[in-house]
Computed example of a mutant assay.
Amino acid sequence: MPVTTDIVAAYRGPRTVFRRLLAMGANEGRALAIVMAGCAIFFISEWPRLAREAHLTDQELNPLLGGSLMAWIFIAPLVFYAIGTLSQFVLRIFGGTASGYAARLALFWAWLVASPIKLLHGLVAGFIGPGPGLTAVGAIWLLVFLWVWASDLREAGWGRR
């Protein structure tokens, strides 16, 4: 199934889609592609906000974009691998049986599934700026991300013996 179809399907039933991803077998290349796609979308979502910031503060846009590129494309995936591994250790403490791959994939997939809302967040940040609208979209993004991540972790083996 195309990834865009899976993202839409994950809003209706995240555990079903994640179960299908796990059934494909452990493939670190696929996991890396998922986290890189999510980070690329997050990088793109920063463009309107950075353009607004550059315009309002009379800065050059290119250095701001370069810093965002470095953060989202090169550093963030490494941080996500660390968080995914840490989440597996936390699951083990609470009796979970998730493999390291499944725990990482749960985080990466939740990140990618929530990324379309981050695109909206970036547009609101760029065109409207700080305010209740930006806060509301950010809160919706966070809730969707946490909901999908928790659902995926549950499917991966959280609380199972």
Rank of each mutant, 00 (worst) to 15 (best):
V148Q: 07
G131Q: 02
I117N: 01
G129P: 06
G138Q: 00
G157Y: 04
P116V: 14
T97F: 04
L143P: 00
Y101G: 05
G131P: 12
V137W: 10
V144Q: 00
L142F: 13
A150G: 02
W111N: 10
L119P: 13
A103C: 07
A102H: 11
K118S: 09
F127R: 00
G129H: 08
W147V: 11
F145N: 01
A106M: 06
I128Y: 15
G100Y: 14
S151C: 06
P132G: 01
P130Q: 13
I117Q: 09
G100S: 09
T97C: 08
T135A: 09
G122C: 13
L134Y: 11
P132T: 13
G159D: 07
A156W: 10
W141N: 06
R160E: 07
P132A: 10
A150C: 00
G133R: 00
A139S: 10
S99I: 07
W109R: 00
L142Q: 14
A156R: 13
E155G: 11
H121V: 02
F108M: 12
V124D: 11
L105V: 02
G159P: 11
R92A: 15
W111A: 10
F145T: 09
L123N: 05
L134D: 02
L143G: 11
S115H: 05
A106N: 03
G100T: 12
A106R: 03
A139V: 01
F108E: 15
P130I: 09
F145Y: 15
L146E: 07
P132C: 03
W158R: 13
L119D: 08
L142V: 05
W141M: 03
I140N: 03
G96P: 09
W111E: 10
G95K: 09
A125W: 10
L105D: 05
V113W: 12
A156N: 13
W158K: 07
V113Q: 06
V137I: 15
V124F: 05
W111L: 14
G159W: 08
A150I: 01
G96C: 05
W158E: 10
R160F: 07
G126Q: 00
L146N: 03
I140Y: 03
I128W: 14
T135N: 03
L143S: 08
W149F: 11
G138F: 10
R92N: 15
P116R: 11
G159Y: 02
W141T: 04
A136Y: 07
G138Y: 01
R160I: 08
R104I: 01
F127Q: 05
A150H: 00
L112P: 12
R160A: 05
R104A: 13
S99N: 08
A103R: 01
A136E: 01
A125G: 14
H121L: 15
S151A: 14
W147Q: 06
F94G: 07
R92L: 13
I140V: 15
F108K: 10
R160S: 10
V148N: 06
G96W: 00
W141L: 00
